[in-house]
């Protein structure tokens, strides 16, 4: 009986901790909008050519971009390929055009030749292999 009580107490504590974490979070989420807490980026990540507007860095807030750029691009791809809808801002081409910049030697190299390519810096850090560039160009037009 004592063991059973111990289990229940342990289970309850675990649930309480999880609940508190979720509760606290939803009431007081990201401070991305304050801008005073820079995100971590792996060393060597190149800067973009320009901000998308005077107040915003990328086509979505960084909080969103950093999590969902893959989903956003895939969604736009489906819109474009299946329904012919163009003009949204989440195209791979758009990312490449703004983010892939010349290196210190003034060369703009493809992802296959440049370990410091914008896309590969984080994907290497997170051990994610992307197959976008087996077909698509990884350099701006």
């Amino acid at each position: 009986m004592a063991t059973r009580t111990l289990w229940l107490v342990g289970l309850g504590l675990l649930g309480l901790l999880a609940g508190m974490a979720v509760l606290f979070n939803s009431s007081n989420a990201d401070e991305a909008s304050t801008g005073n807490s820079p995100y971590f980026s792996p060393a060597g990540l190149p800067n973009a050519k320009a901000m998308v507007s005077a107040t915003q860095a990328c086509v979505e807030p960084l909080e969103v971009i950093r999590r969902q750029h893959g989903q956003l691009m895939q969604h736009q791809r489906d819109d474009t390929v299946h329904q012919g809808i163009r003009g949204s801002q989440h195209s791979l081409k758009g990312c490449i055009n703004c983010h892939v910049t010349p290196n210190a030697q003034g060369q703009t190299l493809s992802i296959h030749d440049d370990p410091q390519h914008f896309c590969s810096v984080c994907h290497q850090f997170a051990a994610v292999k992307i197959d976008c560039f087996q077909c698509h160009a990884s350099t701006p037009e």
Binding site: A32, G35, Q56
Partner: peptide, 11 residues
């Protein structure tokens, strides 16, 4: 890098 404020989401 990326130390931009992003108060407004433009689209």
């Amino acid at each position: 890098r990326h130390a931009f404020p992003s108060k407004d989401d433009g689209n």
